[in-house]
Design a protein around this nucleic acid. Sequence first.
DNA 1: CAGTATCCTCGAGGATACTG
DNA 2: CAGTATCCTCGAGGATACTG
Lengths: 245, 245
Amino acid sequence: MVSYGQYCPVARAAEILGDRWTLLIVREMVGGVSGFNQLGRCLPGISRSVLAQRMRALERAGVVERRTSGGGRTLGYRLTAAGRDLRGVLEATGSWGATWALGDPLPGELDPSLLVFWMARHVEPERLPLGRTVVELKFRAPKRRLWLVLEREEVSVCMQHPGFDVDLIVGADSCALYDVYFGRTTLAEAIRSGAVTLEGPSRLTRAFGGWFSWSAYARALREAPARRQAAEHMTVHDLPVSIVG
Amino acid sequence: MVSYGQYCPVARAAEILGDRWTLLIVREMVGGVSGFNQLGRCLPGISRSVLAQRMRALERAGVVERRTSGGGRTLGYRLTAAGRDLRGVLEATGSWGATWALGDPLPGELDPSLLVFWMARHVEPERLPLGRTVVELKFRAPKRRLWLVLEREEVSVCMQHPGFDVDLIVGADSCALYDVYFGRTTLAEAIRSGAVTLEGPSRLTRAFGGWFSWSAYARALREAPARRQAAEHMTVHDLPVSIVG
DNA sequence: CAGTATCCTCGAGGATACTG
DNA sequence: CAGTATCCTCGAGGATACTG
């Protein structure tokens, strides 16, 4: 953790949140991810040592706390009240990013597993069918298969076939499903155009889109042009301040 | 600038804003500071090379633009619409910091010049007396003298005596004036307790407190206990998500 | 599952001096 | 005023292997 040596709320927050990866760790935890290895898998590119160091720093800062068994073994992490209250910072940051900085995906940025992790954490359990529903996600580009095992009590992402019968097969290019996730297209539109295909009983193919709340930033992305327009007229402090000597 | 390799609004924003010093540079610019050397002075500890590198990165990211003279010389920087729109991120971050992370000042964090820079940029020009008002700020601990030259068209912070007659002398320990700045005490209270003294004509001593809007985070700081209380009851996504294989 | 230990590399950035 | 150039250091963090 860096120190800026300033007694200022922004500086203090930046000291805690400004380290590489830290804000993304918080994003994952606000989304419900709580285990060390789970966090590692949701953040491709972070090393175990960096993740461990960041979790220690977040613990010291009072943003997360360690859940331990009697013996002192860590069972995972949970956000403290301070950590849960970071949702506002995430929303402001994500909305700004969606408005001004999202642009087009760079090559390699459309990792199918990340997308499926995000979908898993945007499942609305009360909209799921009762019992277990197994969805196979078949990505064409890049070629990749993943499975979602959906139950009202728990959602699993499986990198291998989970062993259960598959109820619904979703076929898509990764970029098409990212577009749906971020609200750039509706699922219905993507299906009509053939960019996304659903195979399975019609009660499931019809319901599928409703199981997810999709991205929290879809709205910001949709409203981006208006917000960009409005920002043109924003003013900042305009009294010149000079520093002499 | 780091890259996270994720197509995500939060990740994209963090790539732009997450570098050391960057958010504080934006904080200064939203406050009206626009010159390279002025920025350097408002950010003690930043080196000229790091500042130059950050300004280039912010320019590339579309957050600031360079104002140049005909000859290509940079005259300073100005926020773009995207940069002005970062005010929301600053507010969310600063309010969170004020609520959860400000704590007590560490030794050396109560730099008198920083405080006077911040006061200078929170001057409300239309509340100033007409003409020029020169305020001497006499800090007792740490011992330091600074001057504010206040005009409705421009405010200057002077590290040396500006040459003009002084109209008003403010005496204070740095920590007492920081407390006033952040709304922990009112100026009236600080004067009553003797922590702050004002010497000058009573029309100025009575008006002084009204010339400044003080910290934008004073309100967050005042409401911090209630917000901390409310956050105890906040919930996060609670559907367990597991990743298998 | 949740880490630690060790070794090694490389690049961020401090110090200092100089420039149009 | 707004930087750049050069040199050097040190620490962040990747790779790899191991552990209760």
